[in-house]
């Protein structure tokens, strides 16, 4: 039997962050879909308006974008870790600073 490959800890962090990005994308999709088709499926005569735009459009697109820009910022600030990207060479300590 050969020894299993010893995993690089940085990859665990990277995987976690990739997962957060996927989750945020799904959340964005739900917001976008929910408001657009939840409010926009009825007849045009029954539409409500926010700032002159149909409510479904305003909430799904105009409001959705800043909300998710802020969420993306929060995700990066709170959940992401600053890690070195260069190869870690045991002989060269310079690459190890984080």
């Amino acid at each position: 039997m050969t020894r299993p490959v010893e995993p690089d800890k940085r990859f665990a962090i990277a995987n976690k962050e990739a997962l957060f990005c996927l989750l945020l994308t799904i959340a964005n999709f739900i917001w976008w879909y929910g408001f657009a088709y939840g409010l926009g499926s009825g007849p045009v005569e029954k539409f409500t308006y926010i700032m002159g735009l149909p409510a479904w459009f305003f909430l799904s697109c105009v409001a959705g974008f800043p909300v998710f820009a802020v969420l993306a910022w929060l995700m990066v600030r709170v959940l992401f870790t600053d890690i070195p990207l260069d190869p870690i060479d045991p002989k060269d300590k310079k690459g190890c600073r984080s």
Partner: peptide, 27 residues
């Protein structure tokens, strides 16, 4: 507005491409 709605699905592309390929890709 329906086409604007369609276009707005592109909002996640930035965090999706950078985040999913992510640091693992860079390392």
């Amino acid at each position: 507005l329906s086409w604007v709605l369609l276009a707005m699905i592109q909002i996640p592309t930035a965090w999706l491409t950078l985040g999913v390929l992510g640091k693992k890709f860079a390392i």
